[in-house]
């Protein structure tokens, strides 16, 4: 049943996301082609600028759309009349939440891939060199990559679950459901910021390498990398704990306090 829920959700979202991705890739190709052609008259210059602008908009739309769609699908499918169908299907509340979550994360990942691919197309032929990377041992680079991927994934999951929790609380009110969801978003946001700042302060206070980096006398890039990797893993841990709390709130609200109008 869980896979069937995901199938329905992919069907509903692919009709929006796939055209956006196609537009982003096509515009990236056009931008690159125009870049290769000689800009010897004003028409070509204007055309290149216009396509470049459209490409930038398509890049923003690719990122923004997956985010907007994540909120819109949860709200429309569960909080409006469509909820009368979804909550009477023979599936559990956990399946309802996880199907939406996994589909949203899948679109986040696809959007990241499309943006990367489009950037590579536009930037093909050029080269970027980051000074100091050669000082870092390959094992540390691998460790950094794993920490960045894990932190991004967990941050994405936490963001989705935080917004789901806000919408699930908002729907339980008799009136001003959307306003209450926004109010709870700010409440959760402020609380998470307070926890985040306290966490960063604690790391800086307890880490000798942080001192060195902050005061500009870090021994090497390797030392800085080690510090960042450690901080990212700790951030991922805290983020995962928040995700569990947001999930528990969403589950409880949808199973015990559902209030479809």
């Amino acid at each position: 049943m869980f896979l069937k829920l995901m199938k329905q959700d992919f069907r509903a979202t692919a009709r929006i996301m796939l055209p956006v991705y196609a537009a982003a890739i096509v515009l990236a190709v056009f931008t690159r082609v125009l870049d290769l052609l000689p800009q010897d008259n004003s028409f070509m210059s204007v055309l290149a600028a216009l396509v470049g602008l459209l490409f930038s908009l398509a890049m923003s739309a690719t990122v923004a759309m997956s985010f907007v769609l994540m909120i819109w699908r949860f709200h429309k499918n569960y909080m409006t009349d469509e909820g009368y169908l979804m909550f009477t299907l023979p599936v559990s509340t956990a399946e309802l939440i996880f199907s939406k979550l996994l589909v949203a994360i899948a679109w986040f990942a696809c959007s990241a891939l499309v943006v990367s691919a489009a950037t590579l197309i536009v930037g093909s032929g050029g080269s970027i060199q980051i000074v100091g990377f050669d000082q870092i041992p390959p094992e540390q680079l691998k460790g950094a990559a794993a920490a960045v991927v894990a932190a991004s994934l967990v941050a994405g999951v936490t963001l989705c679950l935080m917004l789901y929790a806000c919408m699930a609380i908002g729907q339980s009110f008799r009136r001003r459901k959307t306003l209450m969801a926004v109010v709870f978003f700010f409440v959760f946001y402020i609380v998470s910021q307070i926890i985040g700042v306290s966490f960063i302060a604690q790391i800086i206070q307890n880490s000798p390498s942080a001192d060195a980096i902050l005061f500009g006398d870090a021994a090497s890039m390797g030392m800085m990398f080690q510090f960042i990797i450690g901080a990212l893993w700790r951030f991922t841990g805290i983020s995962a704990v928040s995700a569990v709390v947001y999930y528990a709130i969403t589950h409880w609200m949808l199973s015990r306090k559902l209030n479809l109008q």
Binding site: A12, N77, D81, E82, Y84, L85, T88, P90
Partner: peptide, 20 residues
Amino acid sequence: SKETKSIVSYLPERTYFADW
């Protein structure tokens, strides 16, 4: 529960379809 929903066919007072 999930189990009872598989034996109940419910027609609510409003239409619940996604219009697309």
